[in-house]
Amino acid sequence: MEALVVFFLLLIFGYTIGSINEKNHYKSIEEREKKTLPLPVVNMKKVEDILKPGKKIASAELVTGSVVVSIDYFKRILASLKNLVAGNVRSYETLIDRGRREAILRMKEAADSPDIIMNLRIETSTIGRSANRNSIGSIEVLAYGTAIKYQY
């Protein structure tokens, strides 16, 4: 019985705090996305693809941005229930979305005012999967690319 009470308390706690955190995170992501909007990020590999005729490259350097995001207790339970019946694990979608957008933002913010970031790559890895059975359910998203400055 006590276990059940603790379970529901954790569920309510996870839901309220988790939703507040998620809302705030999305707000911050949207604001910063607007701010960094003028800097284009593309996944083209070749310099010829991004270079306008007659222009030359002044510098090219690696920029990275990475983030570790965790899921709340409520969403984890939701996902574990979904595991039983199969289907779209909706509760993890925001986690992945936030992770990806945050990583790209951090990468953009890390770059020293380039003209464009090319060859964008995104990688994810699961953290704490093998640590124990009740895995902490968090992911790392790493975004990296080449920051290009044109010669004027």
């Binding site: 607007k34 909007l37 339970i77 939701l78 019946v85 909706r90 979608e93 925001t94």
Partner: peptide
């Protein structure tokens, strides 16, 4: 020309209340 714009809708996140989803799932399971 590069014209920056933000996303209007987020296609990567399914809309809908997670609470309702939990109740539905619990009922099924």
């Amino acid at each position: 020309k590069y014209t920056p714009k933000t996303l209007k809708n987020n296609v990567n996140v399914t809309p809908g209340s997670p609470l309702r989803e939990l109740i539905k799932l619990l009922a099924w399971v």
